[in-house]
Amino acid sequence: MKFDRSGVDALMEITSRPELVFVRGQGSWLEDHNGKRYLDIVQGWAVNSLGHCPPELVKAVTDQAALLINPSPAFYNQPSMELAKRLTGASCFDRIFFANSGAEANEGAIKLARKWGQLKRNGAYKIITFDHSFHGRTLATMSASGKPGWDRIFAPQVEGFPKANLNDLESVRALIDDQTVAIMLEPVQGEAGVIPATRDFMRALRKLADDNGLLLIVDEVQTGMGRTGKMFAYQLSDITPDIMTLGKGIGGGVPLAALCARAEVSVFAHGDQGGTYNGNPLMTAAGVAVFDALAAPGFLDAVNARAAQLAQGLNALSGKWGMKGERGEGLLRALMLDRDDGPAIVDAARDWSPEGMLLNAPRPNLLRFMPALNITEQEVDLLLARLDEVIAKVRS
């Protein structure tokens, strides 16, 4: 089928896209407008936690759409209360505010921390974040991010986000002053190339925050909801954060995010926070279906089994091709290349015939893997075998 540019020209140009249109998906597979299939190891950047069009999610959205879509956040609705109870029951948090994107949840976390600082720390407002971090695309979350160059795109930045170095406690300690209110980090820096914070660093940050009367905020937009083999990545370090943000996988593909906080930190007054679509029953019903699937007996055990299989396979490929190893947590992993041919590998994998494969290269010398959490053993084997073939072709 010929690629139709009429619709393309009506879209605002914000990124480079290949000339293909995806028309359907199931599990770990996508199909384009020509009927070609692709093994999807990106899954909307870790969004589709249960793969494409999982039956339980389709049913939840379909059933809820026939009942009630959006009564407005001025009223309670049952799915939002059900999901909030599940999240608080599975975590160390007491209060949940639902949002529509990870950036919006992180914006809420920043606002909540600053409000807490007004009430509890004499107006302290600075939040220490980290070089190469990624917290979203609003002005405040871009300012909080440590992505190179983002301090100039929409200058001036929102002030108050000094940057430390991940896994370097002294770099954090050096930034604390009487205007500091919180420390905010991703337990695994995704866009930076899947760089985990060490367990010791996470525990040391908690103690540093306690010693200085600061909040600890974990941005789990990418790592939360089973992605690291635990329901939440902070649980790997056995710590208790004060605030957590969720997005991506919480909705399994629909726009849903959450700002989670302990009761003593939940200091918003009426009118401080809100949003037209926030916590609507259609999206939170989807969230309930996703949560229940992830919390089912044995699900996270399977995630960890597939993570071990993928890590072992990537290490074998690294050894074969003289690369620099692999890293990550759970099913958020990276293969560190020995040269800058990541984009070429991504393109070759997508164009592979008769079936393509979707990969991601957030850095030229690195590939990131974010498959569906229910990817099968056979699909991981296929991913590894296909990747080997693609590397061979690119490097020939």
Score class of each variant (00 low, 15 high):
residue 3 F to N: 03
residue 5 R to K: 10
residue 9 D to H: 03
residue 12 M to G: 01
residue 15 T to C: 03
residue 15 T to H: 01
residue 17 R to I: 15
residue 19 E to M: 06
residue 26 Q to N: 02
residue 30 L to I: 09
residue 31 E to I: 05
residue 32 D to P: 00
residue 42 V to L: 08
residue 44 G to C: 04
residue 45 W to H: 13
residue 46 A to C: 06
residue 56 E to S: 12
residue 60 A to H: 08
residue 62 T to M: 06
residue 63 D to A: 10
residue 69 I to R: 13
residue 69 I to C: 03
residue 74 A to I: 05
residue 75 F to R: 11
residue 76 Y to C: 02
residue 77 N to D: 14
residue 79 P to S: 02
residue 80 S to C: 12
residue 81 M to L: 14
residue 84 A to R: 11
residue 96 I to M: 14
residue 103 A to M: 01
residue 103 A to C: 06
residue 105 A to D: 03
residue 107 E to H: 02
residue 110 I to C: 06
residue 113 A to D: 07
residue 115 K to H: 09
residue 120 K to L: 14
residue 121 R to C: 06
residue 125 Y to S: 13
residue 128 I to L: 06
residue 139 L to E: 02
residue 142 M to S: 12
residue 143 S to G: 08
residue 157 Q to N: 00
residue 159 E to S: 00
residue 166 L to R: 09
residue 172 V to H: 03
residue 173 R to G: 03
residue 176 I to R: 05
residue 182 A to Y: 08
residue 191 E to W: 07
residue 191 E to M: 10
residue 196 P to D: 15
residue 196 P to E: 15
residue 198 T to A: 09
residue 200 D to Q: 10
residue 205 L to R: 02
residue 209 A to H: 07
residue 212 N to E: 04
residue 216 L to A: 08
residue 217 I to S: 08
residue 220 E to A: 05
residue 223 T to V: 13
residue 225 M to K: 11
residue 227 R to H: 11
residue 228 T to E: 10
residue 229 G to V: 04
residue 230 K to V: 02
residue 233 A to S: 08
residue 238 D to P: 08
residue 238 D to Y: 02
residue 243 I to E: 10
residue 244 M to T: 09
residue 244 M to Q: 04
residue 255 P to N: 15
residue 260 C to K: 06
residue 263 A to F: 00
residue 266 S to F: 09
residue 269 A to I: 06
residue 273 Q to G: 00
residue 277 Y to A: 12
residue 279 G to I: 04
residue 281 P to T: 15
residue 290 V to C: 09
residue 291 F to E: 08
residue 294 L to Q: 01
residue 303 V to C: 07
residue 310 L to M: 14
residue 310 L to E: 12
residue 310 L to D: 07
residue 313 G to W: 10
residue 326 E to W: 04
residue 330 G to M: 04
residue 333 R to K: 14
residue 340 D to F: 09
residue 341 D to I: 04
residue 343 P to M: 12
residue 350 R to N: 07
residue 354 P to W: 00
residue 357 M to N: 03
residue 360 N to A: 08
residue 368 R to Q: 13
residue 375 I to V: 13
residue 385 A to R: 15
residue 389 E to N: 10
residue 391 I to H: 00
residue 394 V to M: 10
residue 395 R to G: 11
residue 396 S to C: 12
